[in-house]
Amino acid sequence: MRRPDPRTVRWSILIGMLVLWELVPLTGLLPELFLPRLSKTLHVLWLDLDKYFAALLVTLYEVAIAMVIACGFGIVAGATIGGIAALRELLLPVFSSLYAVPIVILYPIFTAWFGIGSESKIMFAGIYGFFPVMLSTAAGIRTIDPQFLLAARSMGATVYQQITRVIIPASLPTVFGGLRLGGALAIIGVVVSEMLTASAGIGYLVTLNRTILDSPRVFAGILAILVLSVAYDILARALERRMVVWQSAGRKQQDTPRPIAGGAPAPAAA
C-alpha cells in the first residue's frame, strides 16, 4: 500500500484537530468552560471583531517597534562582534552566559520604570529579541567563506566592490535569518508582556477574559494570536526564500528547525 503524501497527512491532522475542537465540547467529553466549541469561539470573534481588531493594532504597533530594536541593534551588534576577532573573543562567551538568564524576570523592572503602557512592552520585547538575534548573527557572519574575498581581491576588486559584491550578498542569509528570528521573538515578547501586566493589546484581552472565566473570548484571543504568528512565519519564510534563492540555486532546502547550531542560540519558546 502506498503511504499518503505527507502534505495530505498534515492537512488532515489540522482539519481533524478543528473537527475535534467542535465535537469534543459538543459531546460533553470536556466541559465548555475548558474548551468552548470552535463555532462558538468564531461567533464571539465575529461579534467582538472591532474589539479584537483594535487590540491587534496595539499589539502590532508594539511588535513593529520592538522588531526594529531587536533586529536593528541585534544585527549590527552581532556583525560587529562576530566580525572583529578581538571583540569576539572578549564578549561572545559573556553574552552566551548571560543568555541563560530568563529575560522575563526583568519585566517587572520595566513596568516599574516605564509604566504599564506600550513603552515597557516595546523595551521588553526588544531586549527579548536582541540577544538571540545578536548571537545568531555573530555565528552566521563567520560562515562567510574567506575564499570568496580572496578570489575577489585577486581579481582586483576595490574595497567598495568587496563590500557590495561579496560581503553583503554573502551575509544576506544570516541577516534574513536574524530578521525572521527577531520578528518571531518580538511577537512572543509583546504577547507575554501584555499577558503579564498591561492595559491594552491582544494578550491583555486574553488575560482579561480569563479572569472573568469567559472561555469563548479567551479562545478567540488565542486564535487571533495563533493566526498572527503563523502568518508572520509564512511571510518571513517566503521573503527569505526569495532573497537568498541564489544560494541554493533554486533547489528546495531540507532543513530541520535547529534551536542550536554551534553555540548559536535557540529561538525562545516562551
Binding site: 518571531a184 512572543i188 504577547v191 494578550g203 488565542i222 494570536i225 495563533l226 503563523v230 534551536p259
Partner: peptide
C-alpha cells in the same frame, strides 16, 4: 509529516496556552 509543522510551532508564543 511533522518537521514542517515544527517551524510554526516554534514561532507561536506558548504563553497564550497559559489560560488553558
Amino acid at each position: 509529516i511533522f518537521k514542517p509543522m515544527l517551524f510554526y510551532v516554534f514561532s507561536i508564543p506558548k504563553s497564550i496556552f497559559l489560560p488553558m
